[in-house]
Write a protein that binds this DNA or RNA. Structure first.
Lengths: 348, 348
DNA sequence: CATTAGCACTCTCAATATGAGAGTGCTAAC
DNA sequence: GTTAGCACTCTCATATTGAGAGTGCTAATG
């Protein structure tokens, strides 16, 4: 891994190889390049350059006498320096916008829809992390009696998310106490961010409360639990089967770990959060991933906003040999479009 | 397909073949049977009987000189007449009950959990249709303002399900009108079944209403839409990747249609509702299925109850060569266990 | 001195042949 | 009616082969 002196010619060759491999999924040889791309070089020269690029760690060979394919390092260099960034074409944008439909919808619907559109458009599986609830603002809290021994706690945030939790309660709880607490909760918690629930409840609400402390304790517990990150449906996926269309996942041993991964929400959560950061779109390539199952995949993520401080993450998972230019442009656009739609929803 | 005169010996042979094939996934030959099962018959005799069974349509041969495998008709006969029905063992029951955890939870959690347990226990993908909301009883209705131009309509049913829908409204809607309508809705709709929403709103509520008719119209629309069957998350699946462990789905062309099916909620819905009926557990075998993609699969379903008239369906999808005895017992038990848990939840 | 033509060599992949194994159907004997 | 025996069929795993693609090296070339 000598540090490469990347002259222009080497860069061109690396770019051409990567482009070609992304399109064809076949190792690409010197002959092919010389014929297909007009570099004004003979195969032999290209071979020499390719040998250099391999030594410097940008290319690798599946076996002697196959063509070369980009290494992870090669992809990284390609993404950072070589690739032609592009914007989506107007007609592509239209397709996406239409797919998201004009109809105003609850945030959950929007997210599901976004996942679907993203997967269909890129032909790779999509992942979406629902907006972080910690800074969403509570708009409504309510305790609803379901049966003799159970009460449903529900609250709504300004992002249109509804969370609920069942509270198991003793049988002689009377409706008066319940309504009392319910009203009080609503009054105190409304228009406050989720993250302040605990302090608000303990400091302001505790003292002036008349209801049985047991009920209060359980309600607080339920609230906190509902807010915690382990609620269901946090990561939405779509198009998972599309990964099977990629030739690199033709054999069972290849795709099986991935499909298993898609059923494990915790792992998906890590995948999205580890890579993402605020700001623009990010790419994590192959071995850069911490998750074992996804070592020969790349993840492209971007954050979207659902209110002042509430952010979520959208992402696309594909083979390292992914059409980065297209996916980057799409993820970027989708993130901003989703932010816009959610902004309209919450009226900001 | 002459109508078979099924004497006892033929029945025994058919049963043994089916049992063996279910366990081994290999076509079973006369020799194997004679050796492995103590029928007191020579291979040649068994061959003759097998030839008869084939002619009568209970068995088929993948190709000359392979063993026989049960036809769909054979499986049907096996399930109806031959199979030894069994109950789950106490330790199996314990595993399931534990998997469902003692903690009281919202219905959505319960359903997800049930799907997971069912899939892990049977080693086949599981499907669950959330309870039919049409006869659930409304426990709470509320309009919550989210932003300047959007209002969230939400309602809770006695089964602990929370439905919500965003209503797009004109900017000058005042909070007074909103609260007014919200309170009125709650008063009138509470403790009524979902199915009566429309008539109630039109007949009782329309006249005495003071709020702008436009808002009223949109709210009604949103309510009806929220209640309709096309809400998201209706069919929950789990363990879809497990189908890949079955040897019959080793090749891509075999499993691909199935994985696609799992991403199409409409199709899953049809799959569950077409086969299920009230009462006990049901089996649909291979070609009996209407859905093209599951023609070499069997579906075992059972209904569960989530309140007086609210029913849902749980099911397991596997290859026709499925361990019917185990799956039937499991699905049956899970349905009743889920009914019990939901009963506790709603206090009935 | 960088570039290129030529060539021997390597590795994969698809096509083909081969033989063992399992199972059948039929006939004739019990 | 049951079964032993046998010829026949079909699959599957394994080995063989040759074409094709690509490389690395060397020597010739401008």
């Amino acid at each position: 891994m000598a540090q490469g002196i990347m002259d222009e010619r080497k860069r061109r060759i690396l770019k051409v190889i990567t482009d070609d491999y992304i399109a064809s999924a076949e190792p690409v040889g010197s002959r092919t390049i010389a014929r297909k791309y007009d570099l004004g070089l003979s195969p032999a020269t290209i071979r020499n350059e390719m040998a250099d690029l391999e030594e410097e760690g940008y290319l690798e060979q599946p076996h002697t006498s196959a063509g070369r394919i980009p290494s992870h390092r090669g992809y990284r260099y390609y993404v950072n320096e070589l690739m032609e960034r592009r914007r989506l074409q107007p007609e592509e944008i239209e397709r996406i916008v239409k797919g998201m439909s004009a109809r105003k919808r609850a945030i959950d619907h929007l997210i599901h829809q976004a996942a679907r559109v993203l997967a269909q458009f890129t032909h790779y599986p999509s992942l979406i992390l629902a907006p972080d609830k910690q800074h969403a603002v509570i708009k409504h809290v309510r305790l609803v009696r379901l049966g003799e021994r159970s009460v449903l706690l529900l609250f709504v945030t300004n992002t249109g998310q509804v969370e609920s939790k069942v509270i198991d309660c003793y049988p002689d709880l009377n409706d008066f106490d319940l309504d009392n607490l319910s009203g009080l909760l609503n009054m105190r918690l409304c228009n406050r961010p989720v993250v302040e629930i605990k302090t608000t409840m303990e400091k302001e609400l505790g003292p002036e409360l008349r209801c049985p402390p047991e009920l209060f304790r359980r309600t607080l517990e339920a609230l906190l639990e509902a807010v915690r990150n382990d609620t269901i449906e946090q990561v939405i996926t779509d198009g998972t089967a599309q990964i099977l269309d990629q030739p690199e996942f033709a054999e069972r041993e290849r795709f099986r770990p991935l499909l298993d991964l898609f059923e494990e929400e915790q792992a998906l959560y890590r995948l999205l959060t580890e890579n993402a950061g605020p700001g623009k779109v990010r790419v994590t390539i192959g071995e850069e991933n911490k998750e074992e199952a996804v070592r020969n995949c790349s993840v492209v993520t971007a954050t979207y906003e659902a209110g002042p401080r509430a952010v979520g993450i959208i992402g696309v998972l594909g083979p390292t040999r992914m059409d980065y230019a297209k996916v980057l442009a799409t993820v970027e656009f989708m993130a901003s479009h989703l932010s816009r739609l959610l902004g309209e929803l919450t009226g900001n």
